[in-house]
């Protein structure tokens, strides 16, 4: 994963462009897209509480790694969908999916020694998909580039709506 800020910038850029096409996609829904971009990185809890520590405490084999697989991410998105009010499920769920999906795609570009990264279809299949190996998660470049794109889109958006009264659609 590039750092989380880069993922949030990517989700923001996608949602902002879609908002020009779909009027209902206001800033409030863009926020849901940004939350969706966070879901795959729940796996970072392992930095605070390593799998081995949990394993010793529970005395069963344990790995946070499932959170970073396709199946684990789908479960996390579903939790978000359940937490939304009934009439927000469709739109909110769509945005959560866009956020989490863009994160998965970006993660699939990471540099690994084997050239293979995410288990998209686990637990159905173990296969780790091939990666383009573009960057390491610790490099600042992806954040700077995606940040530049996000800020440009925000400015373009403000310019487009300068003369119309869309104050809610910041």
């Amino acid at each position: 994963m590039p750092d989380l800020l880069a993922h949030v910038f990517i989700a923001y850029s996608l949602c902002r462009v879609l908002s020009w096409r779909y009027g209902w996609l206001t800033s409030q829904y863009i926020t849901v897209g940004l939350v969706g971009a966070f879901i795959p990185d729940l796996v970072k809890v392992m930095l605070v509480l390593p799998s081995s520590v949990v394993e010793q405490a529970l005395r069963v084999p344990f790995s946070w790694g499932s959170l970073a697989t396709g199946g684990g991410r789908l479960l996390s998105v579903l939790i978000g969908v359940v937490l939304l009010a009934d009439r927000e499920r469709l739109r909110g769920g769509l945005l959560l999916g866009i956020g989490a999906g863009s994160h998965l795609v970006a993660d699939s570009l990471l540099l690994t020694p084997t050239g293979h990264t995410v288990q998209w279809f686990w637990p159905l299949a173990q296969y780790r998909v091939p990666s383009l190996g573009l960057y390491l998660s610790t490099q600042p470049e992806p954040m700077l580039i995606t940040g530049g794109v996000a800020v440009s889109l925000l400015l373009l958006h403000r310019h487009r709506y300068k003369n119309s009264d869309v104050s809610a659609n910041r």
Binding site: V60, S63, G65, S66, L67, T69, G72, L75, V82, P123
Partner: peptide, 18 residues
């Protein structure tokens, strides 16, 4: 529903480890 989905995660953790 949330408890059920969290239980799903609970099943996946050991499954992934093994």
């Amino acid at each position: 529903m949330v408890v059920l989905l969290l239980a799903g995660h609970g099943l996946l953790f050991p499954l992934h480890a093994t």
